[in-house]
Amino acid sequence: MNHLHLNPNPNLWKGRSSQEKEYWHQAIQLVDDLAIEEGKEKKIGILGYAGEEGVRRNQGRTGTSSGPEAIRKVMGPMAFHLSDKTLILDYGDILTLEDDMESSHALISETVFQLLQNSHLPVLLGGGHDLALAHGRGIQHYLSSKKEKLGIINLDAHFDLRTLVDGKGHSGSPFYQLSLEYPSNFHYLCLGIQKAANPKSLFDRAETLGESWIDQDEFSLTNWDSVKESLLNFMDSVNKIYLSIDLDGFSSAFAPGVSAPSPMGFSPELAFRVFELIAKSKKLISMDVVELNPQFDQDRATARLAARCVEFVLRNYLA
């Protein structure tokens, strides 16, 4: 067993008893030792990232390492509306030991690659948003021989295009690092950008990279037609989509349990409209939900929101 990996904990998947498969805890299959299920049939692969070193390096509030556990706890008793034949596999968590975030990233990238090679839709549960670097590397490795354009759609209050600190990446730098490592296949759309959370230099960097964004003032239900048009145009320009959901993009009224809460974020209703378009596009290749910090959550509201995001995307993806 890899020392950076924890096998899935069956005690996290609990819920009501039922003779039929009616709840998520009844549908989940636990897989030990990262033994990736082979075969060409479509599968869902859940992988946790119990890491917060990237948040610490970015001077954020630590506590995100407990995020994957909190999401699983609230998903277990949720009603299950996917097909009974859907294979949903929990592969446990990848850890960061001491401050060695880079080693955990390497294992995440290799695991994402293996999941994609074996017909999974990877669903990664964070953990800090530095996860996106490892996640993106795994997807790019998989697509490298297929000559397909990857589009990254990030719902977030922040660009996460910051430079490295003392030569090291962090939770604010993953997409900048991906842009440097894959300059010919980096296509990025960020939804929900807040001016108060991003200095002008980051707007300049996004413009220099030729990337797209919709700021918080325009990312609203009242402006949905314009948002939808921009989203569809972006999706039409790529072959595959990696969806990243940073919970701090939501208003703190819905997501108080994050490292960087904001009262000015977007609503679940708006985000779920975006998720529906992406999930039904048939281009979704992988997704993650990041920055849950249970230490600051209230009545598990943020954990429940994270779980609902995953469930909604999968329900529409498999419809």
Rank of each mutant, 00 (worst) to 15 (best):
I108Q: 05
Q140D: 09
A157P: 01
G128C: 06
I71L: 04
Y91T: 03
L89A: 12
S65D: 14
D130Q: 07
H81D: 14
E69D: 11
L125Q: 02
K147E: 15
A79D: 14
K73P: 10
D130T: 11
R57K: 09
S145W: 05
G92Q: 06
D100I: 00
G92V: 04
L124T: 10
V112Q: 03
D130K: 02
A157E: 05
H135E: 07
G92N: 10
G128V: 00
S104G: 14
M78F: 13
H81F: 14
E98N: 13
V123P: 07
H105C: 11
G136Q: 06
K73I: 10
L155Y: 15
G92L: 00
Q117A: 10
G76D: 06
V55R: 08
D90R: 03
G127Y: 01
S144A: 04
K146Q: 09
P77V: 06
D84Q: 12
P68G: 13
V123M: 04
L143G: 12
D93F: 03
S66H: 15
N154D: 13
N58W: 01
R57G: 02
G63R: 00
S66M: 15
A157L: 07
L95A: 03
T62N: 10
M101F: 07
V55M: 01
A70E: 14
S103G: 03
G126W: 05
F113Y: 15
L133K: 06
F113S: 09
G128I: 02
T64W: 13
A132Q: 07
Q114C: 14
V112E: 11
M78S: 15
L115C: 05
